[in-house]
Design a protein around this nucleic acid. Structure first.
Lengths: 157, 157
DNA sequence: ATATAATGATTGATAAGTCAACTATTTTAT
DNA sequence: ATAAAATAGTTGACTTATCAATCATTATAT
């Protein structure tokens, strides 16, 4: 018996939309767990890692507002507040004010976070790349293109 | 600027493993939210829907133990208990004993749940299929095959 | 100019999931 | 036959995420 058939999906009957969907759910869940396991040794979670990476790569010197970070990551505003609360407590980010708009808080990664990312990043990438290497580079390219098309369409409406 | 570049992934440089991974995360998140929105009108969540579908399709007359349901769905035992607590309170499942092993509880869907699934299922599938129809049937077939290969590999170790 | 609306961020209440420890039962090993 | 290990399920403490409501600040409309 196949994983997908458990959901009532009739495999091999041309229902590739359903198959793809459940394949996506299973792949995501398994991959996410594997990445979370790796990051645990660094006191990080996938969410924290992504936030730090976005701030580091998008924020530069001046930093990034919480809204902007949230937009990149599909993270809600309130969740962003609490995520940053934790990162701030751990000394990994700072919240500074923005000249000209007192509502905005500009987030920057600290030196401590930068070093942590330097240590955690290679293994993090290796974890992901090893997992994906089940597929040939050509297939990965095809997969990536398909997923980008799906993302574009899903974000549109 | 591209979504993936936000994470520091250099798009177009051959890093298709990373691209695929973040594509997977974004696709899953967007798709999951859309499905959750649809199910909300029926008082269901994706987790509840999946559990009910598995019991209905795998359990048949005699029902299914909680462990077995959990195995199909990658849901931990304690989470399964709480999920079923809710479904039981809502009158959607029953927990019966198993002859021969008093530890096991056999879960069955009620008539109420069966009717609910009959009503919710078509739109649920339509939501999924419409989203996936951004890709041609041929592409969906390829995507599905790739994801199944990933799932197999990720479950192995 | 001033009232109204919109925006960025935070908070309280709540939902949902996880881990570790626990109970009850069954299996296995000696 | 009995002690030890394994299994099914539950529970408590904790973490994470979400929604709706709120506060402070800025933008817009008349």
């Amino acid at each position: 018996m196949n994983d997908l058939e458990a959901f009532g999906v009739e495999v091999g009957k041309g229902n590739y939309g359903e198959e793809s969907f459940y394949g996506l759910v299973l792949t995501y869940t398994l991959l996410f767990d594997q990445v979370a396991d790796y990051l645990d040794a660094y006191g990080l979670t996938p969410a924290k890692m992504n936030v730090l990476m976005v701030i580091k790569h998008q924020g530069g010197e001046q930093g990034l507002s919480q809204r902007e970070i949230g937009k990149w990551l599909l993270v809600t505003a309130s969740n962003m507040t609490r995520l940053l609360d934790k990162l701030e407590r751990e000394g990994l980010i700072t919240r500074g004010g923005m000249a000209g708009d007192k509502r905005v808080k500009l987030i920057r990664v600290t030196a401590k976070a930068s070093h942590l990312l330097d240590r955690a990043w290679p293994g993090y990438m290796k974890t992901i790349i090893c997992a994906m290497n089940v597929l040939s580079p050509a297939d990965q390219k095809i997969l990536s293109a398909m997923l980008q098309r799906l993302v574009q369409a899903l974000k549109a409406p």
